[in-house]
Design a protein around this nucleic acid. Sequence first.
RNA 1: GGAGAGAUGGCUGAGUGGUCGAAAGCGGCACCCUGCUAAGGUGUUACACGGGUUACCGUGUCGAGGGUUCGAAUCCCUCUCUCUCCGCCA
Length: 427
Amino acid sequence: MIDRKDIRQHAAELEAALSRRGADVVGPHSAWARVAELDRIQRRLKTELETLQAERNRVSKLIGQKKRQGEDASREIADMSQLADRLRLLQGEARKAEEEFERVLLELPNPPLDSVPDGADEEDNVEIRRWGHPRSDQVPPHFEIGERLGILDFESGARIAGSRFTVLRGAAARLERALIQFMLDMHVDRHGYDEVWVPAIVNRRTMTGTGQLPKFADDLYKLEGEDAYLIPTAEVPVTNLYQDSILDVSQLPIRHCAYTPCFRREAGSAGRDVRGMIRQHQFDKVELVHLTLPERALEDLETLTSHAEAVLQELGLPYRVVELCAGDLGFSAQKTYDLEVWLPSQQRYREISSCSSFGQFQGRRAGIRYRSGKGKPQPVATLNGSGLAIGRCLVALLENGWQPDGSIEIPEVLIPYMGGLQRIANE
RNA sequence: GGAGAGAUGGCUGAGUGGUCGAAAGCGGCACCCUGCUAAGGUGUUACACGGGUUACCGUGUCGAGGGUUCGAAUCCCUCUCUCUCCGCCA
């Protein structure tokens, strides 16, 4: 969430930045105008309320004194009785104003950094670099490869759960597990991450902390009859591990990696990627999460991105890095690099990881702060990135490892994790 | 699911209507003292918001929300969470 003081002190810059990402800033009824207005109203009510409270406290103290000394205080008590009624009224108003302000503020996205390129959507993203040599020969889509090998079972997935669910069999199931294990080992052993295992169900506060709520409730699976949700990414539980706490500066940076299943309703994406397992309601992901000093966030984003890239390089999967333009940025992000892996069947790059800096946006929402020396606690900067999405990685391996005889070559680094299996083939 | 107990500052833990933002201890910080296997002394040490150039002032916060009262950490109601025992279960 945006710093409340900035709404008053840096209104013009904020408005310009928000407008670049297509946020609702135009006109007197925009979220932006409302938030500024509600801030004024709320503060005015609060000042008034506090004046009355000060009066109440002063006289109540006096009453206490008089009573202790055996004096008569009935006149003061009568006065206060009236004041108490007014106080109650004002309290209600002030609370309503505060709630309203919060509600609107929580729906304002993170303003992009100045360095983020202009643009409206995916088309305007900027390619930063490429790695590897994409194959240009004819390769069947992963779902055909997988079905022919009998390792991807879309029919069963649809029958037992619905569309956008897949059953993995045999070598594919093992490959899924191998990838999780391989990525976690790599980030823990070589990149120095602290591994955590976390709940896949979280409460509303947690979902709000990282920015999924209140605005994107439609994208989430909610548990019936409970104020609880299935996580869409490990970012949510892992970042919120530190919600409402004050860290010592010496603890930073904190770097966690975690494997979790992820659940997404894919509400707005009917008709996209309907075949195959590129877009699923449930998928596995290894996630990288950083908590760091605000001034270190950009530097950290480069580091985090390189950690995700290392996975693709080890697996020998060609990819490119693109920087998202302002209009394509996620709600909570101030800057994002997407990693896109080469899919030969589509002859194009597809997103397999998204690495973002959130600045202090999430730190402020989730109440994650740090303190250095005697200074006031400040919101931490948070970052995260997929390292990587397992399902899409599996798709990429099937297609990029595909041989004309229909078999799949397993990358060197995965063979130990596959129990020595070097190739997936029809027996 | 049943029965009971509890939730106070970074931690432990006192506090049953006014002098309590809250004893004490630990931890942290600052200064002082001491030359010996780091001990002692003194002081200081929550967060948020609002006001003021600073010292500072005001308000709120003792799990959350509501109520009683001139006044609530303290009394009442609701909820959440934790712990113990029983049941069930991986």
